[in-house]
Computed example of a mutant assay.
Amino acid sequence: MRDDGLDRAIDAAGGIAELARKIGISQPSVSNWTKVPAQRVVAVEAATGVARNDLRPDLYSEQAFSAEPLDPVDAARAQEYALLATLLSAPPSRRLLDQLSMLTGDATPLGRAHVALAEAASSAVAAKAEREYFDLFVGLGRGELLPYASYYLTGFLNERPLSRLRADMAALGIERVANNSEPEDHAAILCEIMSGFADGSLDASPEAQRAFFEKHVSPWIGRLFADMESTDNARFYRVVGALGRAFIEIETEAFTFAN
């Protein structure tokens, strides 16, 4: 029996087949779900506009987190990583574009990137943004960009960087979702893990977080964002690339100082 959050997502997407199409997996996979798998929550939220705390309240409700106050800087980092995870995992829904159009910024590089994203979202057509996402990351056979650590670090998919990531995830108690065919070194999954570190929903010491970032994120993800920023075949995702590049530069500098 499906839970309420999954039913709401299916209704919002227009049926099981449409939900599967929007998040890039097979219809039978979605048909077998009783609830949205943890590693699909961000993608389903982006595709349907149903909030993650409605999809999986056991993972994202206020009660699921520590009662200890979260540092404002870490809260902001968690939101930034979650935003990037959302935009990398699935094309934005109309509702998400409307929310992004309300972003504000300041004179800093990241603030300017937020303003640019708000402007891009306000003028974006959801169907065109979905097509951009498909052409960039999915494609007919393969997309223009392959957002996987293994590919950027070795030139091939499913190589040693993925096996090293899986070992470190296991050591940190981060489990792979059953029946999930997406390799864990996808940029969206890594951003979601970093968001969990920042907001405390994933338990890891500051040293472990820094080691994870320096080993699995910083060696390659900046190049992915730079490639997105320079692509000729996208408008909305060029702006997403600029935001990601600016944020990762800040994170790299912060972790360097912490070290």
Score class of each variant (00 low, 15 high):
F156Q: 15
R160C: 05
D203S: 15
N259M: 09
L97Y: 03
A178T: 03
A171T: 09
H186P: 00
D71V: 00
E229V: 04
I174E: 09
R112N: 13
P69R: 11
A78R: 02
I189C: 08
Y133M: 08
F257C: 07
R95H: 14
Q27S: 12
G222D: 04
N180G: 00
L6N: 10
F156L: 14
F247D: 05
W220M: 08
Y133G: 03
D106F: 15
E253K: 13
D58E: 12
G173E: 02
A67F: 04
S122C: 01
A178S: 12
L59G: 09
N158A: 09
L70F: 11
G139C: 04
F197I: 05
V125T: 10
G196V: 04
F236H: 00
N53Q: 10
R223K: 14
R112W: 10
L88C: 09
G24S: 00
P69H: 11
P92I: 04
P91F: 11
I250V: 15
A75V: 01
P92K: 02
L172V: 06
S123H: 06
K35T: 14
L243N: 02
E62K: 11
A90T: 05
A118N: 05
D168H: 11
G155W: 12
P109I: 07
F225L: 02
E119N: 06
S61E: 03
A188V: 08
A82N: 04
A254M: 05
L162V: 03
L87T: 04
A258P: 02
Y148Q: 02
F156G: 13
A13L: 11
L190A: 05
R160N: 13
P161Q: 01
T231H: 08
L145I: 06
D135E: 08
F247I: 09
E68D: 08
S181I: 02
A20G: 02
A258Y: 04
P37C: 07
I10K: 12
A12N: 12
R56A: 13
I25R: 09
R245I: 00
F137C: 05
P28M: 12
P69Y: 10
E18N: 07
R21K: 12
E62W: 02
L110T: 15
A64R: 14
E229G: 13
Q79S: 13
S61G: 13
R94D: 13
L96D: 03
F247L: 12
L70S: 04
S101M: 09
S122E: 04
T48C: 06
C191I: 01
A118Q: 01
A149P: 08
A187E: 03
A178E: 11
V217H: 07
I250L: 15
R223A: 14
S61L: 05
S218T: 09
N32M: 15
N259A: 15
E229F: 07
E253F: 10
K215T: 15
R56V: 03
R238H: 01
P161F: 05
G196E: 01
L153F: 03
I189S: 13
A13P: 05
F134H: 15
D4V: 12
Q39R: 15
S218L: 14
G141K: 14
A242S: 14
I193E: 03
L165A: 05
P37V: 10
N158F: 12
L59D: 07
E207H: 03
A113H: 06
V44T: 14
D199G: 00
A170P: 01
V240K: 00
I174R: 07
L84F: 07
A51V: 10
V240N: 01
G14K: 08
A170V: 03
D185C: 01
E175L: 12
R56H: 01
A113I: 07
